[in-house]
Nucleic acid binder design. Structure first.
Lengths: 145, 145
DNA sequence: GTGAATATTTAGACTAAGTCCAATTCAAGG
DNA sequence: CCTTGAATTGGACTTAGTCTAAATATTCAC
């Protein structure tokens, strides 16, 4: 972390502190990449992008993402069996997942199933509701099966 | 696979054939474990249970589960970032996932968000809709944070 | 039947996401 | 400064799942 970046404190420091997160250089680096705009990134993508400017270890990337999640700064999306997506948009919304391309995208429309707490198994409380609409690419229509 | 099992053809053979699946001994062995009743099992659990009676390789377990899925005999549930669950109940329904225990269970109530195809990204069609209600264990209530 | 073509299974090597750990660095208070 | 707790690090490790090339079964044409 060089001095220039240290001094030009973006508001990421403030944003982290606002959530009770101690703004270490590594955490700010992750925030800069992920919170820049609404997007869905995998841990690996974040790791690669952060490393273009800062040396942050893989362990710290994972620690930081888990911390940000816990603090409500980002949201984990379990859609692809191979990896987790981190979503910088924490407002309640659902997702399309294209199983052919592995692309995750937001669903604009409403559709909010609010599950009734009475129906929960005993001793449990709500954590989150994940709606993933799985899509496939429409086939080129030139094939008999 | 010995002759005895070959001859006492359960109706699993028939069930597989009905879906256009060639009923090899290995596939029948997987079917016997998973299709016995409605349940959610991971590939590993299936592997262990199948191996109690039959020698089936890991590769075949995964091949078979993918095949059964494709043929609509079972359903894959992506709820736990660590592994896929295979659900022997293919009728449309949603799931509770307890993030503390890793337990997957069925949601009895309705709540069916039917996404409008017009809202899909261009060139895509519906594959499936997955609703996972994530729960945590209610804390023992004896802690200040 | 016999042999060629096709499908299935196999063991084990491999991949990749994510975790773990012990050692080091850092920041803050006294 | 010095101590103490928190954060970071590299690298080993774990684990679900995939891949591959060889072996085994099955089917089909003759």
């Amino acid at each position: 972390m060089n001095e220039r970046e240290e001094t030009l404190r973006t508001d990421y420091n403030t944003r982290l502190e606002a959530q009770g997160i101690y703004p270490t250089p590594q955490r700010v680096a992750v925030a800069r990449v992920l919170l820049e705009r609404y997007q869905h990134l995998t841990a690996d993508e974040i790791y690669d992008r952060v490393r273009r400017s800062d040396n942050v270890s893989k362990a710290t990337i994972y620690n930081t993402l888990a911390l940000f999640s816990r603090k409500g700064l980002i949201r984990e999306i379990v859609a692809d069996p191979a990896r987790i997506f981190y979503d910088s948009n924490t407002s309640p919304h659902h997702h399309f997942f294209n199983i052919d391309t592995g692309t995750l995208s937001d669903i604009e429309s409403e559709l909010h199933p609010a599950p009734a707490p009475e129906s929960f198994p005993p001793g449990t409380e709500l954590h989150s509701v994940d709606v993933v609409v799985r899509l496939r690419n429409t086939p080129a229509a030139t094939r008999a099966d």
